[in-house]
């Protein structure tokens, strides 16, 4: 990254703190959940014991689950606040996270580009895979969080909601498989899209610094850049270059998280192939 080039904000501090909570809770949930799912493997057993055994990991798992529900609440609160402030374009338009027809068009164009049949699509603020990641978190929290709560308080649900016991059998399957989906997706697809693909390799610090260089921005999100230039709003997002401490912090946290994720996904794949 160029230290003297121009920088612009992509994520504000609130975005970054919430994504920090996502990283911590997600890695925490993975590290304390996978040893139980893979208790039959050597690494699963080792990891479980290293973290204090299944009862300790169970306690920590619930703690990270609370952090997850917390960031979900903080994010929903953020959206509600934007709605109350009548910020335009939350639910439709180029700044919105809601999937729109141009996302399908860009996906089609992207595939053509993969196959060498067309130019690289000019993505706006949110590319279609970034929207997918955003909505996948809602899906994941509903499915894993819901089944997790059932398994956390089984007698409560059986007694007060009169749920039959076999619901917990389904909850075990759903919780476990959806977690595998989430972990597998984040540690391979999201890591590739966000960090490991050659254009960004080894990592993209934007989620930690919040700042993106002009060159990077124009390459990744040209439509957004051009729109802001057209609307004369470039100055609104102008930023100082990320200070050294912030870049170092990004590297430490980013590489640690990448390493934990890649090791875990490697262990899962190795177990599956065994």
């Amino acid at each position: 990254m160029s230290a003297d080039g121009r920088y612009y904000f992509r994520f504000n501090l609130y975005h970054r703190i919430l994504h920090g909570m996502v990283i911590v809770s997600f890695l925490g949930l993975a590290l304390t959940g996978l040893p139980l799912k893979f208790s039959h493997t050597g690494w699963g057993s080792w990891l479980s014991h290293a973290l204090g055994g299944p009862f300790t990991t169970g306690y920590l798992h619930r703690l990270f689950a609370v952090v997850t529900f917390l960031y979900l609440g903080l994010h929903l609160g953020y959206v509600v606040r934007l709605v109350l402030k009548r910020r335009p374009g939350i639910f439709w338009g180029p700044d919105s996270m809601v999937p729109q027809p141009h996302d399908l068009v860009q996906f089609y164009q992207h595939v053509r580009y993969f196959l060498g049949l067309g130019p690289r699509p000019r993505f706006g603020r949110w590319a279609y895979w970034e929207k997918f990641d955003y909505w996948a978190v809602f899906w994941g929290i509903s499915i894993i969080g819901g089944s997790g709560l059932l398994l956390w308080f089984p007698t409560f649900f059986a007694h007060y909601l009169y749920l039959p016991g076999w619901i917990f059998n389904i909850a075990i399957i759903v919780h476990s498989d959806e977690a595998l989906l989430a972990v597998g997706f984040i540690f391979t697809i999201h890591f590739f899209n966000g960090h490991l693909r050659p254009e960004k390799f080894p990592m993209d610090p934007v989620i930690f610094t919040g700042r993106v260089s002009e060159e990077e921005w124009r390459h990744e999100h040209p439509a957004e850049y051009e729109r802001l230039v057209r609307e004369g709003r470039l100055a609104e997002v102008a930023a100082d270059p990320p200070p050294l401490w912030m870049r170092n912090f990004s590297r430490v946290v980013g590489f640690s998280s990448l390493a934990i994720g890649i090791i875990l996904v490697w262990l899962i794949i190795a177990t599956a192939l065994r």
């Binding site: 595939v111 993969f114 498989d177 595998l180 989906l181 997706f185 590739f192 050659p198």
Partner: peptide, 22 residues
């Protein structure tokens, strides 16, 4: 759940593999 996992990973696996050389 199995179809969901297989579907998602197949779709994005292919997406990633095609994207990598570009």
């Amino acid at each position: 759940m199995t179809l969901l996992l297989v579907g998602t990973f197949s779709f994005f696996g292919l997406h990633t593999l095609l994207w990598l050389p570009r």
